[in-house]
Design a protein around this nucleic acid. Sequence first.
DNA 1: CCCGGGAGG
DNA 2: CCCTCCCGG
Lengths: 285, 285
Amino acid sequence: MTSNVHMLNKLVHVRSFTEQSADEQKTQSSHLTLICWNIDGLDPDNVFERAKGLLSHLGKYRADVVLLQELVPVSWKILKNIMKDYQFLQGSEDGYFTGILLRKDRVQFLQSNIVKYPTTEMGRNLLIAHVGHPLCIMTSHLESCKASSQERLNQLRRVWKWMKEAPQDHTVIFGGDTNLRDWEVKKLGGLPDGISDVWLMLGEPEESRYTWDTSINDNNEIPNSIRLRFDRLFLRAAAEGAKLQPESMTLIGLEKLKCDYFISDHWGILCTFIFGASEEQCVTD
Amino acid sequence: MTSNVHMLNKLVHVRSFTEQSADEQKTQSSHLTLICWNIDGLDPDNVFERAKGLLSHLGKYRADVVLLQELVPVSWKILKNIMKDYQFLQGSEDGYFTGILLRKDRVQFLQSNIVKYPTTEMGRNLLIAHVGHPLCIMTSHLESCKASSQERLNQLRRVWKWMKEAPQDHTVIFGGDTNLRDWEVKKLGGLPDGISDVWLMLGEPEESRYTWDTSINDNNEIPNSIRLRFDRLFLRAAAEGAKLQPESMTLIGLEKLKCDYFISDHWGILCTFIFGASEEQCVTD
DNA sequence: CCCGGGAGG
DNA sequence: CCCTCCCGG
């Protein structure tokens, strides 16, 4: 394990994690950037090259907030050893788990919280970080597989409940691998009042619809072409004051590595938000 | 195949199919008796002993109408060769199929009809017989297995439509293996106006609720105890004039054969109806 | 003809 | 982590 970390420290361009581009400085005060990605840490194939690819993306975008799912201890250690300018929060110590990475010079960590799903059979939970602005950042990897729809929807209801009950002065951003099918959200009566799906807010851009797509991604060697929007961001606005508006959403990790694998069987989501006055304020002020 | 029929002709007491009990004569003018049974003709085990058991029951009750599902050509030939006093109508020539058997001295056959289910993947259809009184008799074996719920409900809607649209002077009796779960009927908004579930009309007698019951019936070697009301009778009253009222419903085929098998994995339904004046007539005449 | 799990595509 | 098929319970 330790030698793996050393090897990767050599492989990646550590430089990229400490420098800051001019473009980035230009926008940093008005924007929040976020990456959400299930990195398929359970797949034992081409672990090093895939980790290298992941680090390359994380270093390229230097997002303010990184939400990861299917981390395993070895990948966690690798990231932690290289991304020294991020605060690391993990959903669990062992098995596979989620993580929240907060860029220290951009978001001020205040406190974190782990919420258990009482009936999960896959060890899933909800990881929450309260940070400055104020923001509440959440991630989860909801129960996998079609057959676990009921449990997944239980977990989704719990996520939505926590989003609603977060402090009213906080903007709440949830990002995760929801494993959701559209009919499941419909079954719950659609999104609850006050919670928005960021991809819907952006007008359902077709090019960032499917985050899991076996018509392109053959990491899992699934012969059927199946495309699903498993990975989603939800937003709950703060009650008043400055609001956060989604600005763009693109998918990352779309390129094949030399080993003929993709970084993960999921694409990553790169999303930018813009801090702005609330609509109410625009009208009334 | 032919030798099978000969063997069974020797085995069964053919006598029972031509004699008539005193009790039967007493009630025949006022009552209609019906048997509905999925006889599991696809199960290749103990075919002769099970067929013998079936013939024994059919000879014992000499029902006016017998509705069978999962007949196969060999069982069809056996029954046809022995039950000479019945008119035989079959839903199909090959594979497995449904049949309507009409006791010639009790019900007058007028015409029959086979209605295709356009999207069945299991070759299912609706078999209809118009007989005197006038009655319209229907049977079907709706799409099997939980996974085929959607197709099964399509077929159920079609059955109900045909029941509703039968000539208004006819009483309509449907009996078959519906493979229905209660939640599926609820999903359709319950029984449509004008169509009744005979078991419900009789006050939901607990002892004839489950027609498929692996807690007792081990023909399928299913270790879990699962009880379902797959086999159902529906009734649509004639618009006016004499009505048919359900009187009793009992399950048959509950006893084990010497081979340690039951006749079928389904119990049979034995149902009696009584011809009587309609409620309206009772009040107004 | 139930359910769940495992293999293969 | 898709789906279907098959098998065992």
